[in-house]
Design a protein around this nucleic acid. Structure first.
Lengths: 248, 248
DNA sequence: TAAATAGTGTCTGTAAGACACTATTCT
DNA sequence: AGAATAGTGTCTTACAGACACTATTTA
């Protein structure tokens, strides 16, 4: 038994893939701040030819929704086990001029150190690139973003479809959830300093945090390693995530 | 320009419509506790013939996703302006044996006093009914529910499709959001006593709240009315929602 | 007067903001 | 020695939990 065709429509995924990276810092003695980065794909077809867009594609009739998203994520990053959650479903009639397309957006968090260089190889006829995110806030809520490419240029054109709104929604989700979950640990290496973790929290929240060390002391445990990158002053203790009471 | 048909699938809405109502209380001098209730529809077709299910239906190709849900909600309740938010999208391949159906679930909150009696008239060849919800919690999270009809009987069969999971997800969403938003005011009449509002919070959270009056004092303002229902002892001040700093 | 609700006062513990302070390491 | 980070101590404020207390009304 099947449904009549008039009821059917196209369903897509779009994935907001975020990572945290060091901001360039001239003074090499200072601990660099962090910025969020997002992976975007350049389109080479209409509509929105030559616009940047979120990685995504149509949902396969025979696959679970979550599995589809995870497969697309793997194709772009080469990582299998990483954090992903459903974000929101966008279903306005006019969001794709080719016809009715409803899109289920996902939010994924990756450690930059985990990413495979397969990225550009796997993507066919389209180029992928990381962009730094500069959120624009109104009373703590993110209402807009600027995106800056690795060579320092702003994206001047809008993004394809309603992808900018998806990014804004994803950033707000992350900003809210980071306060009561342990999502931030998906954005630092397995071994990290307290300061590094703090920089991740601060760039997501857009504000400084006091007494940070005390607030997360029960979520981390010291590793038998010290940071050793030559450029710093006093070397910092490296920690790892203590997932005794992890909350995702 | 259109997409190929093999990409297409069926998209549905399901709506979790919740309200709060007084628990039956033998001692008429006591302020009654509140229970959450949910509106369910009895199916009279396969699959899941004679099972209870969430109100819903297929998404119209020519209508925005949100508008579709709002129209269905209006058809069931006769209310136009009420609180509704998108809950989650359920997309496992095996959730409907007739074929691939992805469903976008919504959560709606209604004041029992606002509901039109149109309900049973508007629903064609299917009967609608309210069920009291008894959540089952594990460390504060709701993991299951029992549903009790107005004549005191438990639903013994499971619900249709994955609708039970949708209800559980909706209740957890409500339980979480009620702590940092003003959603609860969608579940009390326009004029309410502090105790009545507290009963709504307590039944959603599943625990008692201390010093409730102080915590919400800046969200309510006294109305020029007192409660007057004959049965109580000292009559209580009626308040209304002060939406100066409302958060939804 | 008893019983029940309406509403206030106050103590205590916890956690965050603010910020001064000590300790350590490299140039 | 100076500069920077690593890490601690402590004061204050705010708020939640707990619970005793007063006030008001009707059976």
């Amino acid at each position: 038994m099947e449904f009549k065709d008039y009821k059917k429509l196209s369903l897509a995924n779009d994935i907001v893939i975020l990572t945290a990276t060091d901001k360039p810092e001239d003074d090499k003695r200072k601990v660099p701040e962090k910025t969020l980065q997002i992976l975007l794909i350049k389109r080479y077809e209409e509509p929105y030819n030559e616009f940047w867009s979120l990685p995504g594609g149509f949902v396969d009739y025979d696959k679970n929704l979550d599995d589809c998203a995870r497969e697309k994520l793997y194709a772009k990053t080469g990582i299998k086990n990483l954090y992903m959650e459903q974000l929101y479903t966008y279903g306005d009639t006019n969001r794709d001029e080719r016809g009715r397309v409803v899109s289920v957006a996902y939010l994924a968090l990756v450690k930059k150190s985990d990413i495979n260089i397969q990225i550009s190889q796997k993507t066919d006829s389209s180029s992928a690139s990381w962009f730094s995110i500069e959120p624009i806030r109104k009373t703590d809520e993110i209402v807009d973003v600027s995106l800056i490419s690795e060579d320092g240029h702003l994206i001047v054109k809008d993004l394809a479809f309603d992808h900018k709104q998806m990014i804004i929604d994803a950033l707000n989700r992350l900003q809210n959830k980071i306060e009561y979950t342990d999502l931030a640990f998906n954005l630092v290496p397995d071994f990290f300093t307290v300061k590094e973790l703090q920089m991740v929290y601060e760039c997501i929240l857009g504000r400084a945090i006091q007494a940070f060390r005390r607030k997360i002391s029960d979520k981390i445990k010291p590793a038998d390693k010290m940071k050793d990158d030559g450029s710093a002053y006093r070397p910092a203790q490296l920690y790892k995530f203590d997932n005794k009471h992890s909350k995702f």
